[in-house]
Amino acid sequence: MRYYTEQDEWIEVEGETATVGITDYAQGQLGDIVFVELPEPGRVVERGKEAAVVESVKTAADVYAPVSGTVTEVNAALADNPALVNESAEGEGWFFRLTLADPAELEGLMDKAAYEAFLGTR
């Protein structure tokens, strides 16, 4: 099941683990992405707090953890090819994986239809 935040992150949940990235809308707003700073595996991230940084040619933006958890893996491909986020934000351009601290936190997030409606209000 895939969820979305109002800060334009997505989180794909499979049981106790989840994959996090930024949405296609977000990559389009940022433009050409030239650097991604990812958390160290083992780091504990908190819902709504900075977990990664994404930098385009002109700007740096924080990426927030959609839910709390412990980082288990990062997308190593982004180190050499950050433009992967532009090409495939919601697929191969994922940022990190984590184990969920509290699955109940997912309840506050949007599904795809709700996120698309939310984008329409911007």
Partner: peptide, 19 residues
Amino acid sequence: MGAQASTGPAAEGVGARGE
């Protein structure tokens, strides 16, 4: 995502809201 530093003209909305 949220705004951080930006130099020069920046994207509005997501990410930086800088000018």
